[in-house]
Write a protein that binds this DNA or RNA. Sequence first.
DNA 1: CCCTGATTCGC
DNA 2: GCGAATCAGG
Length: 158
Amino acid sequence: MHANEPTWTDERIELLKSRFEAGLSCREIAADIGVSRNAVIGKLSRLNLRREGSGDERRPPRKNGEKGRRPKTAPRLQYQMLRALYAEPQRVAEEPIQDGHRCSLLELSAEKCRWPINTPGAEDFCFCGNTPVEGLPYCAGHTRLAYKPNSHLRVARR
DNA sequence: CCCTGATTCGC
DNA sequence: GCGAATCAGG
């Protein structure tokens, strides 16, 4: 059926222009046509249809000396990649962490897991106290919790 | 943190 | 010429 998938046909370009002039965002246009957002933006730029004062900020032309592309060492890019990779499948089951070694702040040492238990300042506030992983302040279970990408989901401290 | 647009560069 | 990668602002 569709032996070939042409890049930008006149129809596509017309559609692109229509959507663009209709005020749709590049994201919408891309999803509608079936291409990536960058493809839409790139084509629009090539067509000389760059947006004017709409949508976002005015940003001065970047220095030509600095390549827009960074091979590596990109803090933002790296964290975005990692986030994308770990995006959804983060299904966290409750880690069975052993209790019974809890200790107070004063009893805390390099040999005790420093994971806080309960609310700081409360009567029963203490620390995990399990044997930590070598080189880390937490025991195995709490290390996993500490490094959990979605730790912002309020992990029940145990 | 997520979104958007814009530019640069490799293919 | 096309589009992914990257940057930058809200």
